[in-house]
Design a binder for these strands. Structure first.
Lengths: 250, 250
DNA sequence: TGTATTAGCCTGTATATACAACTAAATTAA
DNA sequence: TTAATTTAGTTGTATATACAGGCTAATACA
């Protein structure tokens, strides 16, 4: 242990978080127990306990009494819990999810995206456009740009069997995300794909995600206003949940 | 200390939370120090520390080293941080907030509200309808029903100088809240008040709040789609923030 | 009177220790 | 073989103690 300014429990936490982000500790993998940390790190058990306990509360780890502490599976339940996978939502409601790929390609970075994602406009970037269906009814259009160095095998993925969200969060957990919700009247392309009347309203979610201070994806997600709503439930004590519901099916 | 099933630190927490909700401990008031709890409750200092520390993390208390622990002022910063006061948002952007009261009255409970809030339809309920302006531009219509036993002096309040949100959260902190976001085309009354074109989209936030398992308010909040958006920013470690922004002014 | 200093209380962190409860795997008994 | 028991390791909780550092108010000093 080096710096005396930073508390030891925090140094322990930082160490473990770093290993998770570096991939040295992978999802579901066991992390050292409290007693092992006592020996290897030269701290007391209470200090090790505090570090692991807080990492658990923050979603990095899952702990079970009698078993051990394990890295969270970010593919299933990101610690950025608000950003959920739409296929899981649909499955949660007991319905069938499928999708239709409109575009999946490597393109020159559009000027607007270049500015937003801070990528040189001579570069290339992955772009995907697909429609998500719940029991054959369109509920989301995903229009997303993905940093090509983050997901080099993006084009070879079969996004009919796994959603882009799920694939991307499997590569690395997110460090940061921003989500902007607005109400719009979509353009014809969108309303056609969503199979809604022209001039009918949509929820537009614009989402940016970062890994290590670098913006990895920028996407727009369109939902039919009459078939989709965002539900947020807040309680002071427990961790907040933020799940999306579909009016039509609940 | 009574029950052996519930941990002592949790019993301590429950005790303090109860006193906050009962009004025995009021906002900004000092709570017993760790050492005082050691003496009065017969626990060790580490146990008292855990209780106060967690209550601090959960937003019930504010703690300052060298000073003490104090009940949070829920009027300024509710622990349900996502539910913010629109006047504060406007002020945060450096703009001027004002409002126009369309209705403020005690009415018979409409059937729909009776079902939603689980109030007998022979009862009466407060209803308020007002427009919030940011630099004289409408940004929100608040259409809210308030349990009349929760806020008996509701009609005497001057909601030009204090917003209903602020007034209500000053009576008691919230225990629970639900917020549903959807995109709609509003009726003429709404679009007229918002001074937007007919057929232009709105963000509709439907919000329910509870105190002690009892629904206290039910409200609909309409925002012009082209002048308002919800911004959520997520980071794993720190507490999440959820603030509303106004496109036009930022 | 005005200014330093000190004393005392507060939280934050850290250690050492202890027991309870839980779990999985190894061991023993039927 | 199967079932019951033991064992070892893990987390969860609780105590007693200690020192550092922040803050306030009383005290001493000029």
């Amino acid at each position: 242990m080096q710096n005396k300014q930073i508390p030891r429990y925090q140094q322990l936490k930082d160490l473990i978080i770093e290993q998770i982000y570096d991939g040295a500790l992978k999802p579901l993998q066991r992390v050292p127990s409290e007693n092992q940390l006592v020996k290897s790190m030269g701290v007391s058990r209470m200090t090790a306990n505090r570090a692991l306990k807080e990492l658990n509360e923050e979603g990095y780890l899952n702990r079970r009494a009698g078993v051990g502490s394990f890295v969270s599976d970010f593919r299933v339940n990101s610690h950025l819990f608000e950003i959920k996978n739409i296929a899981d939502e649909v499955a949660f409601r007991g319905n069938k999810h499928n999708s239709r790929i409109i575009k999946q390609s490597l393109i020159d970075v559009p000027r607007k995206i270049s500015r937003i994602m801070n990528i040189d406009s001579n570069e290339q970037i992955f772009h995907i456009l697909l429609v998500h269906y719940e029991d054959s009814i369109p509920i989301q259009i995903e229009d997303r740009y993905i940093n090509r160095f983050f997901a080099p095998n993006f084009l070879e993925q079969d996004f009919l069997s796994i959603t882009p969200s799920s694939y991307l969060s499997g590569i690395s957990p997110l460090h940061q995300a921003e989500q902007i919700v607005s109400a719009i009247i979509p353009k014809n392309l969108i309303s056609n794909l969503l199979e809604i009347e022209k001039e009918s309203p949509c929820l537009l979610i614009t989402r940016k995600t970062w890994v290590k201070k670098e913006m990895i994806t920028y996407g727009k997600f369109y939902h039919p206003g009459d078939r989709y709503e965002l539900v947020g439930h807040y309680e002071p004590v427990k961790s907040n949940k933020f799940q999306k519901n579909n009016k039509k099916f609940m």
